[in-house]
Nucleic acid binder design. Structure first.
Lengths: 191, 191
DNA sequence: TGCTTAAGCGAATAATTATTCATTTATTTG
DNA sequence: CAAATAAATGAATAATTATTCGCTTAAGCA
């Protein structure tokens, strides 16, 4: 037959899109720039995606899936709820630090104006797994009995804020710095 | 002479812009829609602002100033650091709850692609006042000795996340709910 | 009350940018 | 190795949308 679509090229396109969004905002995201940054011609974008909207939505879906897989990896599970949560928290923190473009893209996507509304809840379902660790801690009387979404906000929101800060002000990370972040979150959660 | 520009109309324009951004994203913000929502003609926008960029930047500056004035209002000051911080936190929480469009607009602005870079730091200077309450608590040995920006993240990020949630899922607020939010934040901060 | 002048209007225009498509290039397979 | 076919290209086109401008309206002032 003939040539096949190249998954590495697709990934380069998504990377380019995410990076451009983070550097210059969703409004300034131009298909021509995505193509240039990805090292392909503008027209090529349309053999991989039927529209700009489809491209952006795919960038969301694939990135979110990657994050959920990371968070629900059984490798984090330990004997105590404290240690399990710490592992998950650390894994997410490092992921965000290493991939600020992915984290920020996912966070910003909802306000992009390109949302295909149907996909958001579907993708988010995978997160329930993570909440189970928190609910387990509640049953054990270790974690506060607040509504689960409040606890979730206490866990994830500061991470995002701190990563933005690190990124913006080029603060360098020390073990100490990260540990005191987690300590604050744990103090917020614990009974 | 002749007619004067109408500050109420200007406010309506800014309101319209903020609401549209929150409902449909920055990318879908069209001058024609802003005009319609504000109840003026498209051309009128240009007697108030020389460009779309100028309009959006003004929406940012004025909103951010409003927030900073709220946070630095001396009325919040009490005998103890705990009570002062609680007052400021509550004031900000209620503001965000009542004006989610203002809070979200300010939060999203950085990623809008319309930033006039020079203004951001200038406007943010006013926030130092608020950090002083936190630093005071550190000197008193009441608040953890973590870097100030980490403490700031612990304070503000969960509020933003929770307001988004309330807005999205139409959770109804109870006194209890709000108090347990603040309790978590305080536990995160306190020594 | 009438004159002056800037606000207000919105259709027409200019600019911008997503998408298409005729052509070229490269991969697959018999 | 050659034929078949789909990917890749990027200039041309279509679509979208910010901005302008000639005209109308109304606020301020003598």
């Amino acid at each position: 037959m003939a040539r096949q679509k190249d998954d590495i090229k697709r990934e380069k396109i998504l990377d380019a899109a995410r990076q451009l969004v983070i550097n210059t905002g969703f409004t300034s995201l131009r298909m021509a720039e995505v193509a240039q940054k990805a090292g392909v011609a503008t027209g090529t974008l349309y053999t991989y995606y039927k529209s700009k909207e489809a491209l952006i939505n795919d960038a969301y879906i694939t990135t979110k899936k990657e994050i959920i897989e990371l968070l629900t990896d059984p490798v984090h599970i330990e004997q105590t709820t404290y240690l399990t949560l710490k592992n998950v928290w650390m894994a997410y923190f490092y992921f965000c630090h290493k991939n600020p473009d992915k984290m920020l893209f996912v966070e910003q996507f909802i306000y992009s104006g390109y949302i295909d509304e149907t996909i958001i809840e579907k993708v988010d379902e995978g997160l329930y797994e993570v909440f189970k660790y928190v609910e387990k801690g509640q049953k054990e009387g270790i974690i506060k009995n607040a509504p689960i979404e409040l606890l979730q906000a206490q866990i994830q929101a500061p991470i995002h804020d701190i990563i933005k800060l690190i990124h913006k002000k080029q603060i360098k990370l020390t073990k100490n710095y990260i540990d005191s972040c987690f300590q604050m979150t744990w103090d917020a959660l614990k009974q």
